[in-house]
Simulated assay, not measured.
Amino acid sequence: MAVPEQERDRFCRVLHESRTSLYRLALSITRNSDDAQEAVAEAVCRAYERYPQLREKDKLPQWLLRITANEARRLCQRRSRTVPLEDLPAEPAAPERETGDGALWQAVQSLPRDQRETVVLFYYEDLPTEEIARILGTTPGAVRVRLSRAREKLRSILKEGDHG
């Protein structure tokens, strides 16, 4: 099914506006810039193929985030690997350049994947818990629990950094 030109333009505009968010989410899952780029590219292809079937076109940004999260997880499972914290680049990744807080981003990267995804979507993408639950395929209550646990861990990590 072909995408009409007006809809194609809308898709491209929303994609352009969401590119940083998609990359940041994929990076928080894969912990590797190349893998994050690959996951985003694959997600964009899948989304474009299925775009004509999307009923609520105003939900396109959230839909793109969900597909990106799924693609990043799928890529990690396919590669079946984990990246030790020691292998993370010492130079700040893209999100720190935006926020100016590399220590916080590094702390976020040390969280377990489910908490990392949730923190990125809540604090960096400013999404409500209900929307995060839809994107991650869980309940709003689970999202709130993940956020609470993540905040607790982040406080501990950042406190150690101040005194360590």
Results as ranks from 00 to 15, higher is better:
Pro84Asn: 12
Ile67Cys: 08
Asp34Asn: 03
Ser110Arg: 15
Asp34Gln: 15
Ala36Thr: 12
Glu91Ser: 04
Leu15Ile: 11
Asp58His: 13
Leu85Lys: 05
Tyr124Asn: 05
Gly161Glu: 14
Glu98Ser: 13
Ala107Tyr: 13
Arg78Gln: 14
Val40Glu: 03
Gly102Lys: 07
Leu22Gln: 00
Ala150Met: 12
Gln106Ser: 06
Ser148Gly: 01
Ala26Glu: 06
Val145Gln: 09
Pro89Phe: 10
Ala150Ile: 03
Val143Gln: 01
Gln53Trp: 04
Thr139Cys: 10
Asp126Ala: 11
Thr68Asp: 09
Thr82Cys: 11
Trp63Val: 05
Ala41Gly: 08
Arg79Asn: 07
Arg24Phe: 12
Asp114Leu: 04
Val44Arg: 02
Arg81Glu: 06
Ala107Lys: 14
Pro89Ile: 09
Ser110Met: 10
Leu88Pro: 00
Thr30Cys: 12
Leu15His: 12
Tyr124Val: 00
Leu104Met: 09
Ala93Trp: 08
Leu147Lys: 10
Asp34Gly: 09
Pro112Glu: 10
Leu64Ala: 05
Ile135Trp: 02
Glu117Thr: 09
Glu96Arg: 03
Ala69Phe: 14
Glu5Asp: 10
Gln106Cys: 04
Glu125Cys: 13
Arg8Val: 07
Ala93Cys: 00
Thr139Lys: 12
Ala107Val: 11
Arg46Gly: 12
Ile157Ser: 13
Val108Cys: 02
Arg149Ser: 15
Gln77Thr: 08
Ser110Gly: 13
Asp114Ala: 06
Leu27Ala: 09
Leu64Asp: 03
Lys153Cys: 03
Glu130Cys: 09
Ser80Gly: 02
Ala43Leu: 04
Ala93Pro: 01
Leu111Gly: 02
Leu27Ser: 05
Arg144Ser: 15
Glu38Val: 03
Ser18Lys: 14
Glu152Val: 01
Ser28Glu: 00
Pro140Leu: 15
Gly164Lys: 04
Thr20Arg: 07
Cys12Ala: 04
Ser18Ala: 15
Met1Ala: 13
Arg146Ile: 12
Ser110Ala: 15
Arg13Met: 07
Leu75His: 04
Phe11Glu: 09
Tyr48Trp: 12
Ala72Val: 00
Thr99Glu: 04
Ser28Ala: 11
Ile135Lys: 01
Gly137Lys: 14
Gln62Tyr: 15
Ala2His: 14
Thr99Gly: 12
Cys12Gln: 13
Ser80Tyr: 09
Leu22His: 06
Val40His: 05
Ala72Arg: 06
Pro128Arg: 13
Ile132Pro: 00
Lys159Trp: 10
Ser18Gly: 14
Asp35Lys: 12
Trp63Gly: 00
Pro89Tyr: 07
Glu5Cys: 02
Gln53Glu: 13
Cys76Gly: 09
Glu42Asn: 09
Leu121Ala: 08
Leu54Lys: 04
Arg10Pro: 02
Arg151Asp: 11
Leu15Met: 13
Ala94Asp: 06
His163Phe: 08
Ala26Pro: 00
Thr118Met: 07
Thr129Cys: 03
Thr68Leu: 10
Arg8Ile: 04
Gly102Arg: 05
Arg113Gln: 11
Tyr23Leu: 06
Glu5Arg: 15
Leu158Gln: 14
Arg134Asn: 02
Pro84Asp: 10
Lys159Gln: 00
Arg73Glu: 15
Pro128Lys: 08
Thr30Ser: 14
Ala142Leu: 00
Val143Leu: 02
Leu154Lys: 01
